[in-house]
Nucleic acid binder design. Structure first.
Length: 483
RNA sequence: UCCCUGGUAGCUCAGCUGGUUAGAGCACCUGACUGUUAAUCAGGGGGUCGCUGGUUCAAGUCCAGCCCGGGGAGCCA
């Protein structure tokens, strides 16, 4: 069997007889089957001889019926394609009743297709997205492998709820109706499967740190769970996260790694997925044309990817970001909804201004105020990068992308035991639970750093899609876990 | 969770200040078609107007509550 990609691209196959199998996209003029097998966004035109294929069989070439065709690949007589198949044998493997099949050969809304998530892979848009998602995923492994990182499998289930990255899903085998109670009348998790209350992971970072302080360089890549009631176009309850962690790396190295990874992935997609990108590019352009002039982006999808690939990310400190925002037109005209002042977190509107209006390219912001960041981030001292005389800062870095906002959050980690413990006390993080984490600082601690990259947010950027639910096969969001 | 917005045929949508039998395009069904590119042409069928209650002689249209979708915000990746 030959894939349609091979049949179309491998010119040496022209003139030979091959067999292909796939799903019918359209059947035109009682003669032309546009066949797609997922190997490429392009279809193979299979031309049948009406004297060889009876009317009853021809009536079965409905949209999405599965068909196997054998025939000679010849130069196309029509103008829409280079080669086509002159079919000598055709077999319907699975019928697709046209009056029942919900996906029509026409433009559907993404909302409608989301409700048919199991069939949406059969559309051009989603097949393109998921081929690109594969390129990004594979590229992640490729990049880290080339840079000496070990793929590290952090646990999915964790007994610690001190990771500080949001609400967690509880994992339990206790009877939900009548859980065992302790003397105080609370649920007795000693009776639970793990002998303690346990949850799905919100981050593999803390475990990855322990491995980095032995293997040197590691990265995790797996599903992550947040039980936040977030209803936005860029949040999921189950998503995939990449978390590299490297010993002896400082914040500069962390930024270089993050930028290097992003560019590697973009380059890989540009190299391997051009026909999918061209389809999505046209799709984005069509969508942009619907918007009012002021909201249209200046670049097309492919253009934007090339631009990000070729230009260095802007690197600024939180101090500088605040200064830029205070001088900005929207601030002066009081168009920002949220206040801009040193010490408060940057809001979406502020990030968008910096990335989309001021710099017009990805921006890395470092040196955030300590009070708005996690306990494990390294506290800056005078002379440290990102130190500010306006207040206590940490060696954090957020990578902000146009249209998406935060795509990466990372930091140099606090390697000094006394500083780390003081910080944990200050923020109310239970040290007892994280005794194993603190051990890494007691025995041969070293400076180290890492970050978390949201896979779906990155795929969102690369595909030009607008809703994160469209770049993961079966999205899990509050109130929705179908399929 | 908050704010905005929507729910009418399989899909996308129209239906003005309440008033006969709720419309269109596409899809679907029947027929035609040996070079089509979301093929085309002719004909046909198809509706619990999200749910519940209320106002009214009369509700797709007005009011209330609920459910679901979309956009924005917060939380973050």
């Amino acid at each position: 069997m030959t894939t349609i990609k091979e049949a179309l691209d491998n010119e040496s196959l022209t003139g030979s007889t091959v067999t292909v199998a796939g799903w019918v996209r359209t059947f035109r003029n009682d003669r032309f089957i546009a066949l797609n097998d997922g190997s490429t966004i392009r279809n193979l035109q299979c031309v049948i001889d009406q004297e060889q294929v009876d009317a009853a069989t021809r009536a079965r070439f409905n949209t999405s019926a599965s068909v196997r065709c054998t025939g000679e690949l010849i130069a196309s007589q029509g103008s829409g394609q280079r080669v086509e198949m002159k079919v000598t044998a055709v077999e319907v493997l699975g019928d697709s009743p046209a009056d029942k099949y919900p996906i029509q050969p026409k433009k559907h809304s993404l909302e409608f297709l989301r409700e048919h998530a199991h069939l949406r892979f059969r559309t051009n848009t989603y097949s393109a997205i998921f081929r690109i998602r594969h390129q990004v995923s594979f590229g992640i492994h490729e990049y880290f492998d080339r840079h000496g990182y070990n793929y590290f499998h952090a646990p999915i289930i964790t007994a610690s709820d001190a990771e500080g990255a949001g609400e967690m899903f509880r994992v339990s085998t206790l009877d939900a109706k009548q859980p065992p109670l302790n003397e105080a009348g609370d649920v007795d998790f000693n009776e639970d499967f793990f002998g303690t209350e346990s949850h799905l992971t919100v981050s593999g970072q803390l475990q990855a740190e322990t491995a980095a302080l032995a293997l040197g360089k590691v990265y995790t890549f797996g599903p992550t769970f947040r039980a936040e009631n977030s209803n936005t176009t860029r949040h999921l309850a189950e998503f995939w996260m990449v978390e590299p962690e490297a010993a002896f790396m400082d914040l500069h190295g962390d930024m270089d790694l993050a930028e290097g990874l992003c560019k590697h992935l973009i380059a890989r997609v540009l190299k391997n997925s051009m026909d999918d990108l061209q389809f999505l590019d046209a799709r984005v352009k069509e969508e942009e044309a619907q918007k009012p002039q002021a909201q249209r982006s200046e670049m097309g999808l492919i253009e934007r990817l090339q631009f990000v690939l070729e230009n260095p990310f802007e690197r600024i400190t939180y101090d500088e970001a605040i200064t830029i925002l205070l001088r900005s037109k929207p601030y002066q005209k009081k168009q920002f909804q949220f206040p801009v002042e040193w010490g408060v977190d940057l809001q979406s509107e502020h990030e968008r201004y910096l990335v989309e209006k001021h710099f017009k390219k990805p921006v890395i912001v470092t040196g955030y105020p300590a009070q708005i960041k996690a306990f494990y981030m390294r506290t800056n001292a005078p002379g440290d990068f990102g130190y500010s005389d306006k207040g206590k800062t940490v060696a954090a870095m957020d990578v902000l992308f146009p249209g998406i906002g935060e795509i990466i959050g990372g930091s140099q980690r606090e390697e000094r035991l006394d500083v780390l413990e003081a910080r944990m006390d200050e923020m109310g993080v239970p040290k007892e639970e994280l005794w194993w984490y603190l051990d890494t600082r007691k025995f041969g601690t070293v400076p180290h750093a890492g970050f978390g990259l949201g896979l779906e947010r990155f795929v969102l950027f690369v595909t030009g899609m607008g809703n994160i639910r469209d770049v993961i096969p079966f999205p899990r969001t509050p109130g929705s876990a179908e399929f």
